[in-house]
Simulated scan of single mutants.
Amino acid sequence: MSAEVLTPAIRDQEPLLSVQGLTKHFPARNGRIVHAVEDVSFDVRRGSTVGLVGESGSGKTTAGRSVLRLVEPTGGKAIFDGVDLFALSPREMRSYRQRLQIVFQDPFSSLNPRMRIAAILGEALDARGFPRGKARKDRIAELLTLVGLSPDHATRYPHEFSGGQRQRIGIARALAVEPEFVVADEPVSALDVSVQAQVLNLLGELQKKLGLTLLFIAHDLSVVEYLCDEVVVMYLGRVMERGPSKQVYAAPRHPYTKALLATAPVPDPTRRRTHVPLQGDIPSPINPPSGCVFRTRCPEAVAACAEIIPPVEHVGGGHHVACIRHNEPIA
């Protein structure tokens, strides 16, 4: 599937996952609150890849883990295949774990160093009641082959592999339960650039082969552009812009998206940057700015930006923007 445009078959169907008003607060010292995620909404259509992108501290990882209830959300809904995951009891949620999986950022710390790869994948197979014996051994060999490794690697320990190979093992573990939906939480950020491309290609191939639906979390816009059909740009817990990747990258509307694109690597040395790079540091989520949370770093901010929390409004073609100065409909 091309990351440039959604096919009509995907674009017109109901989303597999619809996140509505997702909010997550953490308690801090002296009764203060960390506003990690605030009123975040987006859809993920079956068979597509949606990218959550933003700087460190933007809330994208918390949003992804909240959807899976690896951290309990404070508010909102996550409608998965018609069922609100946030309304399920812990026991009811366990029955959905097989359908929703995650690939973690650090492929070393997410694997038990004292377990052989066969045992690591075996734990995942236990979760779905997979029988032991030859059938299990064959399934482990199949999973390793699926992610580009040798079945012989099943007898080794995690420290015997490179970072890219360990991430392939993490992907195999997530796929062991045959999920429909996978959150990939910055799965290539800890890898060398040359290895990143291999893992991204693997994810794209697996999505097509297995019919996976992906929520891909990253801080690198070039990675998201390569892999994702749609993109959701987050800043300090809020959505700044979202829409089809082709539209957002070709004609970004929010000053934050423009700034992120200005700092992204440009492969063509003759190509001039048309946006102002991002300046300063992201504010504390304990004390976010009033109004638009991006206003303290925004080169286009006006006085009203301190008073109004801009709604995420549709500007045409599935493109949404949260900016009082740039939310006019696209002509």
Rank of each mutant, 00 (worst) to 15 (best):
S110Q: 13
D106I: 12
A135H: 02
P151L: 10
A118D: 14
Q105K: 09
S48K: 04
F130T: 06
E72H: 02
V67T: 02
D106G: 11
G64S: 11
A119C: 03
F108W: 07
L125G: 04
K77P: 00
V67A: 03
D43L: 10
I102K: 02
E55H: 01
M93C: 08
I102E: 06
G59M: 04
G59N: 03
S41V: 10
V147H: 04
I120N: 04
L88T: 01
K134A: 15
L88F: 00
E38V: 11
L149H: 04
G129T: 12
L125H: 00
D138F: 02
P113G: 03
I140V: 15
K134T: 15
Q98C: 08
G51P: 06
L146I: 07
G54M: 07
L143A: 12
M93W: 06
A118M: 13
E55P: 06
F86R: 02
D152W: 06
P107N: 08
G57A: 02
G64D: 10
P107V: 05
L68Q: 03
L52V: 12
S95L: 09
F130G: 09
V71N: 12
A63L: 08
R69A: 13
I102L: 13
A141Q: 11
K137L: 13
K134E: 15
V50G: 07
S89K: 05
Y96L: 09
S109F: 02
H35A: 05
L144H: 02
V147N: 09
Q98I: 03
V67E: 02
G82K: 00
S66P: 11
L70Q: 05
V40N: 08
N112V: 14
I120T: 12
